[in-house]
Computed example of a mutant assay.
Amino acid sequence: MDADPDETQYALRAGAGDQHAFSWLVKRHQGAVHRYLARMTGLPETARELAQDTFVRAFRAMPSWRPEARFRTWLFRIAHNLALDHLRRAKRVVFEPLDDGLETPDPAPGPEQQLEAQQRIRQLETALAALPAAHREILLLREIEGMSYEDIAQTLELNPGTVRSRLARARAALLAVLRHH
């Protein structure tokens, strides 16, 4: 997936000190960054603080950002590092439920379909919570945030082949947990 030309222009302007351009970038990415951090930490208030720290660090580092790196992957790398630092300090790995980002396929499901959808979401949440943080993280970046393999590779500082193999292992682990339950 190629970089968004508007985003690149805003990032270049932000790097030159344009606060309006940086505000545009924050508005564009704050929801995804917060959602990612909330699911990684399991603590919405902590995720808000970490998201704020992500954008503060990004603002300070904007002059060093280069257009060769997509802004979104660069920003998620900062969020990733903050989440890992927090999890290491807290010595805990928890999981934030997914139901805020998932919708049932039928716009007007009946009670039975709603119950089935809620049960599937709970099963998925339980299965994801049982996975190691590295598996959960790569699944969140790919399946929930929709990042490309290349973007995940840049975010996690891996090569794309490693991303593919880790994603395959994470999916297999998720399926194994789902089958077990």
Rank of each mutant, 00 (worst) to 15 (best):
G15Q: 05
H34C: 11
S165G: 07
R169M: 06
L37V: 03
Q154F: 01
N81S: 04
P109K: 06
E145P: 02
E103L: 09
R60C: 12
Q118W: 02
R88K: 12
V93F: 02
A153L: 01
R179G: 13
P160C: 06
S148I: 06
T41Y: 05
R57L: 15
A130Y: 00
H135C: 10
W74E: 09
R120M: 09
A61Q: 14
R136L: 01
E150H: 13
P97I: 01
A127G: 00
R171G: 08
H80V: 04
E7V: 09
M40A: 15
D99G: 01
R72S: 02
L82R: 07
P44V: 02
M1G: 08
R164D: 07
R171Y: 11
R72N: 01
A173I: 09
H86A: 08
L43E: 11
Q114S: 08
N159M: 15
A58N: 14
H180F: 08
F76Q: 02
T54S: 15
T8E: 07
Q154P: 00
A11T: 07
P132I: 10
L174D: 08
L25T: 09
R57K: 13
G101H: 01
H86P: 07
N81P: 00
H181K: 11
E125W: 01
R66Y: 11
A170D: 05
I138R: 09
Q113V: 00
E68I: 13
R72W: 01
R77D: 05
G101E: 11
A16Y: 04
R89C: 04
P63S: 09
L131W: 03
D99N: 01
V33H: 07
R120F: 05
A69W: 10
P109E: 04
Q114L: 10
R48V: 07
R89G: 05
F71Q: 12
L175T: 15
R136W: 09
R122G: 12
A3C: 14
H20Q: 11
Q154M: 06
N159F: 15
Q119A: 09
H86S: 06
T162H: 13
